[in-house]
Design a protein around this nucleic acid. Structure first.
Length: 287
DNA sequence: CATTCGTGAAGACGAAT
DNA sequence: ATTCGATTTCACGAATG
């Protein structure tokens, strides 16, 4: 194992057997200590991202015995056969293969969306449950996978909008929404309405706004929350409006068009929302 | 000139029936 | 399955700087 390059290299011949495809780059940013607590996690020993939870037998690809000694020719051939059979058992029934494919999709989409690993884990768990409950018939693997990712991201407090999800998925938005609702209902999943604040960090950093502006945006949202200004309004729109309003208040250069761009929200909606936000701000004493 | 603002019609969505 | 009410979006023109 070549730790420096993250590659698995055959010690005998130098052949690179497997390059590490896992992105080890920063997955999330913590903007204050409370958020850090929210986002950080401690690695669990088992993982649901592998179709067998990583618990099934794996036969090492190296032709070494437990002590690291090389194997004789006869033993090598024997090991080859064992590996082959082991592989067959692992992907034996259709459910297992189904899972394998779905988890691959989940991983792909999660990567494309820059979602942290714990979200992929959650998505995997959700999919696994859906499969166990026989929710699959009549629905595509892709659709359920996508719905799982969507649900997982929201549960983890790092929501992605339906539009963003749609971009990386191979199924229609309407189908994702439909499947998502179905899965949530059938599995009794608890998904609170998305918190507008959880969108703020992403928008703010995309627009390269100062930390101060970002903080203002949060204040505006909390303020609005207390006054119940938001209800039935789109959380994304609220977040976008708060970011825009905060940029104005801190004299930073941004346009409605720019915010609208990164948030995938129409300018009109931003206009409507940020008026409401500023009104709410005036009714309450500023901190 | 770019950006922002307000309007009314049209589409999308969820809830209720 | 359809209807209804609220929200969002689009397209436009006007105002602001």
């Amino acid at each position: 194992m070549d730790d420096e390059h993250g590659e698995t290299v055959c010690e005998d011949c130098g052949l690179v057997v497997e390059s590490d495809e896992i992105d080890r780059g920063p997955e999330w940013r913590a903007f204050d200590s409370s958020e850090k607590d929210e986002k950080s996690r401690v690695g669990a020993p088992t993982t649901n991202m592998m179709h067998d939870k990583g618990l099934s037998t794996n036969i090492d690809w190296r032709d070494k015995d437990a002590y690291g000694n090389s194997l004789s020719g006869k033993q090598r051939q024997k090991m080859q056969r064992l590996r082959k059979w082991n592989e067959r058992f692992r992907t034996r029934d259709s459910k297992e293969r189904n899972l394998k494919q779905a988890l691959g999709e989940i991983d792909r989409m999660a990567s494309a969306l820059g979602l942290p690993e714990n979200v992929r884990e959650t998505a995997s768990v959700i999919y696994r449950r859906a499969l166990d409950e026989d929710l699959l018939p009549g629905r595509s693997i892709e659709g359920v996978s996508t719905a799982s990712v969507y649900a997982a991201a929201r549960q983890a407090g790092v929501p992605r909008s339906l539009d963003e999800i749609t971009d990386v998925s191979r199924v229609e938005k309407s189908e994702i929404a439909r499947t998502y609702r179905y899965v949530v209902r059938e599995l009794g999943l608890e998904v609170k309405p998305a918190d507008p604040e959880s969108y703020v960090p992403r928008f703010a950093s995309s627009l390269e706004l100062s930390d101060e502006a970002e903080h203002r945006a949060r204040q505006l949202l909390q303020n609005a929350k207390e006054q119940g200004v938001h209800s039935g309004k789109s959380p994304v729109g609220l977040a976008a409006a708060a970011v825009y309003a905060a940029a104005l208040l801190t004299n930073e250069k941004t346009t409605q068009a720019a915010v609208s761009e990164v948030a995938d929200i129409s300018e009109v909606t931003i206009r409507n929302r940020y008026h409401e936000l500023l009104e709410a701000e005036q009714d309450l004493p500023v901190a």
